[in-house]
Amino acid sequence: MAKLPTSENTETFIMRISPELKEKLNQLAKKSKYGGTASSAIRYLIENASRY
């Protein structure tokens, strides 16, 4: 069996959202500062919110 990568990005976060919220998240992710994917947008928002 292969070893898991030793990076900081090995945790899994699962969240149920409505189709409408998913579409809003995908639209938000398209903005350049969010990285282009829903996962990167969520990561960006969590990291920035934790600074305050």
Rank of each mutant, 00 (worst) to 15 (best):
M1R: 15
M1K: 14
A2M: 05
L4W: 00
L4Y: 06
L4K: 15
S7D: 13
E8T: 08
E8H: 10
T10K: 12
E11A: 14
E11I: 08
T12Y: 03
T12S: 10
F13E: 06
I14F: 03
I14D: 08
I14C: 07
R16D: 08
R16T: 11
I17P: 01
I17W: 03
S18A: 11
S18F: 10
S18W: 05
P19I: 09
P19N: 11
P19H: 05
P19L: 08
E20S: 15
L21N: 14
K22A: 14
E23V: 06
E23A: 15
K24H: 12
L25V: 08
N26C: 02
L28A: 08
A29D: 07
K31Q: 15
S32C: 01
Y34M: 05
Y34Q: 02
Y34L: 05
Y34C: 06
G36L: 09
G36E: 08
G36A: 10
T37V: 12
T37Q: 03
T37C: 10
A38S: 15
S39T: 09
S39G: 15
A41P: 08
I42T: 06
I42A: 13
I42M: 13
R43S: 10
R43K: 15
Y44F: 13
I46R: 04
E47L: 09
N48D: 12
R51V: 02
Y52T: 10
Y52K: 13
